[in-house]
Design a protein around this nucleic acid. Sequence first.
DNA 1: ACCTCTAAACGTCACCGAAG
DNA 2: CTTCGGTGACGTTTAGAGGT
Length: 254
Amino acid sequence: MWWHQHNLCFRHPVEEDYSGDLEEKVSIAGSGTGRGSPAVTLVQLPSGQTVHVQGVIQTPQPSVIQSPQIQTVQVATIAETDESAESEGVIDSHKRREILSRRPSYRKILNELSSDVPGVPKIEEEKSEEEGTPPNIATMAVPTSIYQTSTGQYTATGDMPTYQIRAPTTALPQGVVMAASPGSLHSPQQLAEEATRKRELRLMKNREAAKECRRRKKEYVKCLESRVAVLEVQNKKLIEELETLKDICSPKPD
DNA sequence: ACCTCTAAACGTCACCGAAG
DNA sequence: CTTCGGTGACGTTTAGAGGT
């Protein structure tokens, strides 16, 4: 399973897709300066996006590798629970299954990443315009008329593609949802209407959820790309440092 | 101008876990 | 148990690039 791979092997489809060519595509604009200088490095991602990597590389202890390694930690945790499961029984096996079977949401993963890497932006809990709206049927049926995509573009829901327009015309007008109490439904026709209404509502919500999910996924992928770029630079600097130390420490031939 | 290909975005369905 | 939100999978549409 996808998430199994993510946990146990530190492999991730996204990483698999991107890490390979990043090695070639990531270009380092202002390559690392000497030790001690304020190493501000511009890293260009394959997408053209540039990343400043200063904050990440500057660690309190310059010679110690401090990679977040979130996945490794997860593996260790799982291993521990595996051992204790023998003594603790069913409860832990349930938990284990939970960990293994269900992949955390992109928001969770990215937020974990961002807590380890200062340069990584957090995904907002909710979009600001949604925050103010109470969980009330009448208001939540209104899709945002304009929202900003992850690429910074603004999309109006008004200019929908044709296949969206031909969505069932029985859909209620946006923002208006009939509040029919179950007790007031008698005839089969009313029941059918109620079922249709519920279906339309569910579809609409799922539509929005899918959009949001894709947005988060894109953000997550971007985050991983930046992280890869950052780690590449960090790696390069460490190699350079190692070479320098080797030069210093190697016995000189007489 | 017209195809053909491809990447990106979308809508829907099915499934799962969390919450009530 | 039911409801709801998140997400993978799948099929569809669209826009843009490249070839004829």
